[in-house]
Amino acid sequence: MNIYLKELKSHRKSIIFWSIGVFLMVVSGMTKYDAYSTSGQSMTELLEDLPKSLRAVFGFSDFDLTKASGFYGMLFLYLLLMATIHAAMLGATIIAKEERDKTSEFLFVKPVSRNKIITAKLLAAFTNLVIFNLATFVSSIVILGRYSDGEAVNGEIAILMAAMFFMQVLFMVIGSALAAIKKRPKSAASLATGILLLTYILSVVIDLNEDIEGLKYLTPFKYFEAKNVMYGGGFEAVFVILSVVLIVGLSIVTYVFFRRRDLNT
């Protein structure tokens, strides 16, 4: 319990800044929608004239951008990137920082098992993910409510947040597993964000090239895409199962490798 509280405290500032960041992201994104919707039909036509590849890269290929929910669906990709970057970095650093800051000779000499330390740290990281998710959820409901013009958007936001949460937890355990495995845990955070960007790019490439559709299982960014999840689409069972398996698997990897590792000074 003491380790959990200590970790919450030491990440307090960071989660506040991230929450403000995500709020500003929603605000600035939806302000653009405002300018956009008032310009009327011409903008949509202009976008439709853009080459498919460019639309895929920016993530607005499949949305009705004249609707607030459609515009939000596009914006969601950027929120998702923020959330997963936060999660991956948090998962890696919360494990690695004791060795990075050389405080391991303090913490790991205390009468607690390594498993308990990892549990406390992962729970603290998990709590931060929940806060991040709620901050995004609340910002989205409040801001989107002002532009929705009677359209029911809260349900769409809720399901997107659920999707985001799966992704957050997944990237958190990718980060923590890397920190537990790597000899030099300092580099775990950058490696985790590297993997994140790589899988993101892969998801864009898949969008551009239908022949490699089969690779979608390799990138979590294909698991819960806004365009599939929204408007009654919901989650696909195979991806939910895949995510849960990955999350459980990587959590086990974190515990097993960390329990065996020689701590650096």
Binding site: D101, K102, V109, P111, S113, K116
Partner: peptide, 15 residues
């Protein structure tokens, strides 16, 4: 964990 209840440790470099 049991043993460490009764150990006090001072490392050569404190961080």
């Amino acid at each position: 964990p049991e043993i460490k209840k009764h150990i006090g440790y001072l490392p050569s470099e404190v961080f």
